[in-house]
Design a protein around this nucleic acid. Structure first.
Length: 491
RNA sequence: GCCCUCAUCGUCUAGGGGACCAGGACGUAAGCCUUUCAAGCUUAAAACCGGAGUUCGAAUCUCCGUGAGGGCACCA
């Protein structure tokens, strides 16, 4: 039997990182066994459907590299893959259950339901129409009273849910009421729709969040009622908010202790400058481990080791700082041109006009300093931002100290200007030799350090920058000389 | 309130009766390197939630607590 897994989001918003994580495991399992991974849209709550959400999710999945063999856009042998296009099917199965005594029409009004809930009826419904006389049901129907279809849960006994990660989880049946499977508008609820689809689409392994574990007994009972084989159920743990309480929500923005925003949507990870390989590697380390103390790996490498049964059932907080580290590791493997092209848009977003040539010149020096692409912004302001440096930051006092008194500083900068005007070739070796010699000559301790530090400040207007020689080269001879002129004039 | 789940360093994890005075990674701290900031290298601190069992032996099995979470819709 081929493995078939699916990702079945409802199009109510954006792709959540937790959803992507769950999709990843389903995808990995299907790929490992050469099976199929499907995308199905669960849009039976039409009031919550958000335009564009499907496209957004597909885009996110593609970014992660999670491709699907069957889905709304590519079709497949068990389509359609959008639930609102399958309603006739669900209705057919709902009525089949009625015909076989496993479901019934319920005419309870919203007001009645409200009253039952207020009275504290377990499950919010007292099953008043469960055994309603057939002729009276016919009467109500003849009067055009709206109704829903409810599934008859057993009143006694217990239901065992075989969960791959937890074993059999036993639920007493009296905990449940008769759940609505077909709404009064004719659309199915999740309980009916996902189950009919999973069966018809021949899904073998269901990966979904633990929040479904509590309603899984209904599904087990329904599978039995239909006489269908239960797929392997894998309830993945919740992803917790790293700061504070509860699960990671996309509704309420959370913040790290550091004050940074907690990333939740897939699109936020993209915008924040993470590489898909890094994020996927990061997610694969959540609840599962490669083994052999290995943290960094490609998904292709992970596949042979992967098994759904090895996933830990414990809830997790995403270790965001590890993602930063991993992303940095992946950046180190990028070639300079690709890296520069990846960084460029983030610099341009600052309103800077970015010259690729200059960027390429500093990129080798920048690479080990980057964990994410936007990290380059504070380093490279001097290169692309033409607004003049803050005068209070770059002043004669800032450019001199006891190891490099003002007169010596002025002389050193003047010497540097002469040197840079003629230095050939204009490369790191030449500049390094010349400028450090000038530095040693003018500082009171005879070391180049104090001068080079001031030179960085003078040239870049920044306390922190790429290494000075590289910065000067990236700036180019003319611009560097112009800045030295400005500095010398400060004394 | 009722039902369900989970529990190893701060975090992600390895481990599944003796190989564990518990291993790795991130983060943190210190040192080296160094023109800043990083990177890199070296070192350090840091955990089996508690209590009872079972056993010659428990981080590992059982039970009870505790804590953390999830669920109780004509939402998924």
């Amino acid at each position: 039997m081929t493995v078939r897994t699916r990702f079945a989001p409802s199009p109510t918003g954006y792709l959540h990182i937790g959803s992507a994580w769950s999709a990843l495991f389903g995808w990995m399992y299907a790929r490992k066994y050469g099976g199929q991974f499907l995308l199905r849209i669960e849009d039976t709550d039409t009031s919550r459907t958000v335009p564009g959400a499907i496209e957004n999710m597909m885009e996110g999945l593609r970014w992660f590299g999670l491709d699907w063999d069957e889905g709304p856009d590519v079709g497949g042998p068990y389509g359609p893959y959008v639930q609102t296009e399958r309603v006739a099917l669900y209705q057919e199965y709902a009525y089949w259950l009625i015909g076989h005594g496993r479901a019934y029409k319920c005419f309870a009004t919203p007001e009645e339901l409200e009253a039952m809930r207020a009275a504290g009826v377990p499950g919010g419904y007292d099953r008043r129409y469960r055994d309603y006389p057939a002729d009276q049901v016919a009467d109500l129907e003849a009067q055009g009273k709206p109704y829903v279809i409810r599934f008859k849960m057993p009143l006694t006994g217990e239901t065992a849910v075989p969960d791959l990660l937890r074993g059999n989880v036993i639920f007493p049946n009296d905990q449940f009421t008769d759940y609505v499977i077909l709404k009064s508008n004719g659309l199915p609820t999740y309980h009916l729709a996902h189950l009919v689809d999973d069966h018809l689409m021949k899904i073998t392994h269901v990966t979904r969040g633990v929040e479904w574990l509590n309603t899984a007994p209904i599904h087990v009972q329904m599978y039995q009622a239909f006489g269908w084989e239960l797929p392997v159920l894998v309830h993945l743990p919740v992803i917790l908010n790293p700061s504070g309480k509860g699960k990671l929500s996309k509704r309420h923005q959370a913040f790290m202790d550091s004050g940074e925003k907690v990333l939740v949507r897939a699109s936020e990870f993209i915008e924040a400058g993470y590489l898909p390989e890094a994020v996927v590697n990061f997610l694969a380390n959540i609840g599962w481990s490669f083994g052999n103390d290995r943290e960094k790996f490609t998904i292709a490498e992970a596949l042979p080791h992967f098994d759904l049964a090895d996933i830990s059932p414990a809830p997790v907080k995403l270790p965001y700082s590890k993602l930063d580290w991993l992303n940095g590791q992946y950046i180190q493997e990028m070639d300079i041109l690709t890296l520069a092209q990846a960084v460029k848009p983030y610099l341009e977003k600052q309103g800077w006009e970015v010259n690729l040539e200059s960027l390429l010149l500093v990129m080798p020096a920048m690479k080990p300093r980057l964990k994410t692409f936007p990290d380059a912004i504070p380093f490279l302001r001097f290169l692309f931002d033409e607004t003049p440096p803050d005068e209070t930051a770059v002043s004669a006092t800032a450019l001199s100290d006891d190891k490099l008194p003002p007169t010596a500083a002025k002389a050193a900068f003047t010497a540097a200007r002469h040197f840079l005007a003629t230095a050939v070739p204009f490369d790191v070796e030449t500049l390094g030799a010349g400028l450090s010699q000038i530095g040693s000559q003018y500082t009171t301790n005879g070391k180049p350090g104090p001068f080079l530090g001031k030179l960085r400040l003078g040239i870049t207007g920044q306390q922190v920058s790429p290494p000075v020689y590289e910065s000067i080269i990236a700036l180019g001879r003319d611009r560097a000389l112009a800045r030295l002129e400005t500095i010398i004039a400060l004394f």
